[in-house]
Design a protein around this nucleic acid. Structure first.
Lengths: 241, 241
DNA sequence: TCATTTATTGAATCAGATTCATAATCCGCG
DNA sequence: CGCGGATTATGAATCTGATTCAATAAATGA
């Protein structure tokens, strides 16, 4: 059924077009002004056709987030494949986040909105599940790094479940994303480069966990050098600029 | 001008009524189904009157968050007045967060929504500023604890600004709030009591900063005992159950 | 008490998401 | 090819709910 396949492909291409246009409109006019009719118009399709793909506006937003998450996963997978000590890999996860936001500055803003009760609840169950599934590898990769560290004797859990270690580190990064994107919140704290700060705190926290080899978080140049090295060795093509 | 005062008081009382009713409706039907007309109806006022107080629905939501923040500040102030070592006080800030969410389970969900680009942008500038001002003491108190620690020789900054220490700790707590409230995100991580975990990671991070006296985060019972003690000494009336 | 100012009301308006009857297109078959 | 039924696209009509504002009521003060 080559014709059926073609249909499917064309459908997928159209969906991609809608998503691309939506992204462009968000970029241009802000999420606040995103209108379904506008997306349809700019894509040269009718509104009804748009709704053939997305059961609601929220559904579409969730699809956008899912797309981003896939790229995020791709970056985490590079880290997983990177031949380095678990501690370095774990730190590289933080660097991945940093590089990711640089390339997708709108992602966390959008993700934050989509994870909101209101939007989450208004999207279709299917789309929610797809997002959760897409996210799943992120946790799994971090989890496996923690397990490697334990196996190699670099980290003792001391009664903590490996997942709980993950959640601790994840809180730190997620929290920084939230703070950065919460308009006005960081204002009084004049932080120049929040993501570099996040990296430093990540090292601090890893030290607190006594995850060997310890890293002197105090040594700014060493921190920058490590970040630089990871960019080169792991995210080479994504780190220009 | 007793009559003018009375007017003012009545206006404030009515505003409070609107807020209370809104909170109740959110509690009952969810944020998703909150409608301005419903709020007005349940408050026995006309829609137009509601708009006399809040320039938009988003404005009203922001006012709700601001109310909560004031209580949050009250708790932080107790910590600031608490006669204990800076490290204990800093930890108590985390405990304050934990107790606060228990008493206001809807707060962070709502706050997360309100800090979203869409809602933030749709509220009035005045209301935004009021929220920011209400928030300000939270940061200031944490900041002062950090400074105390440095003054008393319990903590070296090693090139970090005091604000940057704050931001690191704040990321951790904010991130945990975000994770807890992001539907489905923590699912795979089966964390029983995320806020207790947050407390533990907070201690870990403070250790990582080499903030004396160090605390053995590994010692579960000691952690629980400390949390318990803080509840008793600082948040006695708020900690029942 | 009455004129004037101020506040309240809720029906009308408006914006924008969503639906669905109609029109167009596609597909397999003779 | 051309036809009839099935599938898909269309966009005007509908629906929802926020917001406005002309009409009405209440308060003020001379």
């Amino acid at each position: 059924m080559s014709t059926k396949e073609r249909k499917l492909r064309e459908f997928a291409e159209r969906e991609q077009r809608f998503l691309d246009v939506a992204r462009e409109l968000i970029q241009r006019d802000g999420l606040l002004n995103l209108a379904m009719a506008r997306i349809a118009e700019e894509s040269d399709y009718a509104v009804g056709t748009l709704y053939q793909h997305f059961s609601s506006k929220e559904d579409l937003l969730m699809a956008l987030v899912t797309e981003d998450v896939r790229m995020h996963v791709d970056m985490f997978e590079r880290v997983a494949r990177w031949d380095a000590k678990p501690r370095e890999r774990m730190f590289a996860i933080g660097v991945a986040d940093m590089v990711f936001v640089r390339r997708h500055p709108e992602h966390f803003r959008l993700a934050q909105y989509v994870l909101t009760e209101v939007v989450w609840g208004a999207a279709s169950a299917t789309r929610r599940q797809i997002l959760l599934d897409a996210n799943q590898p992120l946790g799994a990769i971090v989890h496996s790094i923690v397990r490697d560290a334990v196996t190699q004797g670099d980290l003792e859990l001391n009664g903590l479940a490996p997942e709980e270690v993950c959640v601790g580190l994840w809180s730190l990064t997620m929290g920084m994303h939230s703070l950065v994107h919460a308009e006005g919140m960081l204002q009084d704290f004049n932080v120049l480069d929040p993501y570099r700060l996040m990296c430093r705190h990540l090292q601090t926290q890893l030290n607190g966990l006594n995850w060997r080899p310890l890293f002197d978080a105090t040594d700014g140049p060493a921190l920058d050098a490590l970040i630089e090295r990871i960019c080169h060795e792991v995210f080479n093509d994504l780190c220009s600029q």
